[in-house]
């Protein structure tokens, strides 16, 4: 089997130019360049109210095939009980079960993930196939008390907190593009991870910022997400 392709070049987001235009300050995590914060250094309040962050450069990977659940268990990954549920691992890795036999792994906010490292280095068992999720999908985080209200402008699934619990997954259409929405709260702060086609990330970013405007939402860096946690 072909392993997930990697590069030793520093990863920079497809949204890099938009971040630059918004006066972003960057930070390097492993081989990833991530926005630390934008013009304001303290974006915690913004993130608690309504924030949008780009984590597309952070590590993630995916596996599918009938052998996947057993193989992942052998690696020490704790599996969500059913499809369309996600579970945070002890190392902070988010494991999203997209079907009976498909997993999406996303790193913690430090860009570190023992689970991902283990899985990418481990030999794939029979009927386990790797998926290049770092490249196929962008990763945005929409967070804050107004996040559900914002999503209601772009997505036809009821994602309000009392209807869509922490750890729930919706594979659906967001602003007319397909994506995976995982509710993954940051401490007390309501938060949704949105994984979507990487070539559409600029469109999605712009659409979300537009939808957020009426609620006074703004882009936030990873520092604010960590502070919420």
């Amino acid at each position: 089997m072909l392993s997930t392709l990697a590069t030793d070049a520093l990863r920079r987001s497809q949204l890099y130019r938009r971040h630059m235009a918004m006066d972003a300050t960057f930070t390097t995590l492993g081989d990833s360049v991530v926005v630390s914060h934008y013009a304001s250094e303290d974006e915690t309040k913004q993130a608690q109210h309504l924030g949008l962050a780009d984590l597309s450069t952070l590590p993630r990977t995916g596996f599918k095939g009938l052998g996947t659940p057993d193989w992942a268990l052998d690696l020490g990954i704790e599996l969500p009980a059913r499809p369309n549920r996600a579970l945070l691992q002890s190392d902070g890795t988010l494991v999203a079960r997209l079907s009976q036999s498909e997993l999406l792994l996303a790193s913690n906010l430090n860009g570190l993930s023992e689970s991902i490292a283990n899985a990418t280095q481990a030999e794939l068992a029979e009927r386990v196939y790797s998926l290049p999720r770092s490249d196929s999908h962008s990763w945005l985080v929409l967070c804050g008390s107004q996040a559900a209200e914002t999503l209601a402008k772009v997505c036809g699934v009821d994602l309000r907190p009392h209807k869509f619990a922490d750890g729930e997954i919706a594979q659906t259409s967001i602003a007319k593009i397909n994506g995976v929405i995982v509710r993954n709260d940051l401490g007390e702060t309501l938060s949704y991870c949105i994984f979507s086609d990487s070539s559409s990330v600029e469109f999605l970013w712009d659409s979300l910022l537009d939808a957020m405007a009426e609620f006074e939402g703004a882009a936030v860096g990873i520092q604010a997400l960590r502070d919420c946690r």
Binding site: N84, G156, V157, T172, S173
Partner: peptide
């Protein structure tokens, strides 16, 4: 059967 009830435009 996998994702539950959705608007038919998702299909």
């Amino acid at each position: 059967p996998l994702n539950g009830q959705r608007n038919i435009t998702e299909f």
